Amino acid sequence: MSKVTGHNPLTPEQIELMNKVKAKGNELGELIDELMALDDTDKRSLATGKTNIQTGLMWLVRSVAKPSTFS
């Protein structure tokens, strides 16, 4: 089994948590797509919201994975 530098093997519980985060992220992504398809929504605000949601999801995943390196 190869190892990715800075990443620890995940427990089944951690894998489940990460999959939950990713599932909620997909739900939010679908909602963002719906909002983007509407003519009367502010696309700049939606883009900013999308970016911030993606950033938040990344941090939630990192909180579970707890990488040991800077990147």
Score class of each variant (00 low, 15 high):
58 M>L: 12
29 G>H: 14
30 E>C: 02
65 A>S: 15
19 N>T: 02
13 E>P: 08
40 D>Q: 00
52 N>M: 14
10 L>H: 05
58 M>H: 13
56 G>P: 03
15 I>A: 11
34 E>F: 10
46 L>H: 00
25 G>H: 04
6 G>S: 10
38 L>F: 01
18 M>V: 15
60 L>W: 09
14 Q>M: 12
1 M>G: 09
55 T>N: 15
4 V>W: 10
60 L>V: 00
59 W>D: 15
29 G>K: 14
57 L>A: 02
68 S>A: 14
28 L>E: 05
29 G>F: 04
4 V>G: 06
53 I>M: 11
39 D>G: 14
28 L>S: 05
40 D>R: 03
25 G>I: 00
44 R>L: 13
20 K>S: 11
33 D>V: 00
11 T>F: 00
59 W>L: 14
46 L>K: 08
64 V>F: 11
4 V>P: 02
41 T>A: 06
63 S>L: 15
35 L>K: 14
22 K>N: 05
60 L>T: 05
28 L>F: 08
69 T>W: 13
57 L>C: 02
50 K>A: 00
20 K>D: 02
28 L>K: 13
6 G>L: 01
2 S>W: 00
60 L>K: 14
62 R>M: 14
64 V>Q: 08
36 M>H: 08
25 G>C: 09
67 P>A: 13
17 L>H: 08
38 L>V: 00
9 P>V: 12
25 G>N: 05
58 M>V: 06
3 K>E: 11
59 W>E: 14
9 P>S: 03
9 P>L: 01
65 A>H: 11
42 D>T: 04
48 T>R: 12
45 S>N: 10
61 V>D: 11
6 G>P: 07
22 K>Y: 03
6 G>Y: 03
1 M>L: 00
4 V>H: 02
64 V>E: 02
1 M>E: 06
41 T>Y: 10
1 M>W: 10
7 H>G: 02
9 P>D: 01
3 K>W: 01
30 E>K: 04
38 L>S: 05
65 A>G: 11
33 D>W: 04
34 E>P: 06
1 M>D: 09
32 I>T: 00
68 S>T: 15
20 K>F: 03
23 A>R: 01
20 K>Q: 06
23 A>D: 13
54 Q>M: 11
51 T>V: 03
11 T>I: 05
14 Q>I: 03
30 E>D: 04
69 T>D: 15
8 N>I: 04
31 L>S: 08
23 A>N: 06
11 T>G: 05
1 M>N: 01
60 L>I: 00
2 S>Q: 04
57 L>Q: 12
68 S>D: 15
69 T>R: 10
20 K>C: 03
24 K>A: 14
33 D>Q: 12
42 D>Y: 11
31 L>H: 10
21 V>D: 04
9 P>H: 11
60 L>Q: 13
11 T>R: 12
53 I>P: 01
63 S>Y: 15
33 D>S: 10
14 Q>T: 02
9 P>F: 09
14 Q>Y: 01
18 M>A: 14
12 P>M: 08
53 I>K: 08
48 T>Q: 13
27 E>D: 08
13 E>T: 12
66 K>G: 10
17 L>C: 01
18 M>Y: 04
45 S>Q: 14
16 E>G: 10
17 L>N: 07
12 P>C: 08
18 M>R: 02
24 K>E: 06
40 D>H: 05
52 N>F: 07
49 G>E: 01
11 T>Q: 05
